[in-house]
Amino acid sequence: MSDEVLLQAEHVVKEFPVRGGLLSRTVAKVSAVSAVSIEVKAGETVGVVGESGCGKSTLGRVLVNLLRPTAGRVLFEGENLSALKPAAMKEKRRRLQIVFQDPFASLNPRMKIGDTLAEPLRVHLGWKADKAGAAVQDLLVQVGLSAEHANRFPREFSGAQRQRVGIARALALEPSLIVLDEPVSALDVSVQAGVVNLLQELQRVRHLSYVFLAHDLSVVGHLSDRVAVMYLGKVVEVGDRNQIYTRAQHPYTQSLLSAVPIPDPERQRSRRRIVLEGDVPSSVDPPSGCRFRTRCWKATDKCAAEEPALVDRGEDHPVACHYPEVVVALV
């Protein structure tokens, strides 16, 4: 890891219109991502965790410029992505890739895997079929498949193999940063580990940076150097892996950690449990003040009136809570 900042999101906001009524006019807006700032250094993995609908995928798409932020900006290699001309963006795209959650939906079912993988090489690098073909065989081997797989169609692959193809496609243009959106969530547990190890190995060999978006805190903790915790479109806590997993200060992070089952019966019996009440509120009409207050056991009047800012209290571990404190034995 180095100190060079590769990707920087500054106060990124992404709103979607909510349509309704007879004329399907815009009746409200969802703030899927509200003023999120994160930084990714070269060779580093930043994990983003949070429950369904908290804005992970939206953030991921904004980070790679597949969605334009409503406000704020994303700098990649120092340049504001939404200000780039198409040609310049195409050039950046080679080094900024994304792998989607559902490996099947993102592969063209009528194209042989080899052609899918060769496409970016032809389009971006102008390579001829034979040169691209040789590179594709290389790529397949690098992600743990074999050269013969090039002639097969997506339906002939298992879920884990398709996910490897998705990773191979992202790697084709030698990126420096890959956003991974739930890359192992759809896989059976026995094959998940293989994909996780592959990601780690590729990072080591190619000095890649990852933004790893997932709801599974165990996988995120395994892969990440730094972790950001999101709740209803906001980052509530950021820190290095151990700060978040052993010294979490935000009540939401604490409740998430305490809710993740650990496959160890004695550990399960001895851990402290924090069982939250209720569900995540709607992001169309988030609670006033602190968005977590409707489920927080520590909430006071101040929490309803005043939104807590994401403040670093000196350890490079920013927390957005009026009453941050460490709780022991959550894990």
């Binding site: 026995s190 094959v191 996780v196 165990s218 892969l223 997993y245 650990i262």
Partner: peptide, 25 residues
């Protein structure tokens, strides 16, 4: 045993490589 070894755990330090099960069901 292989399943237990292949799982990342919340309480591991994230340093050891996982042990995948080869092949698929």
């Amino acid at each position: 045993r292989s399943l237990l070894r292949s799982l990342p755990r919340l309480d591991d330090r994230g340093t050891d490589a996982l042990t995948p099960i080869t092949g698929a069901p």
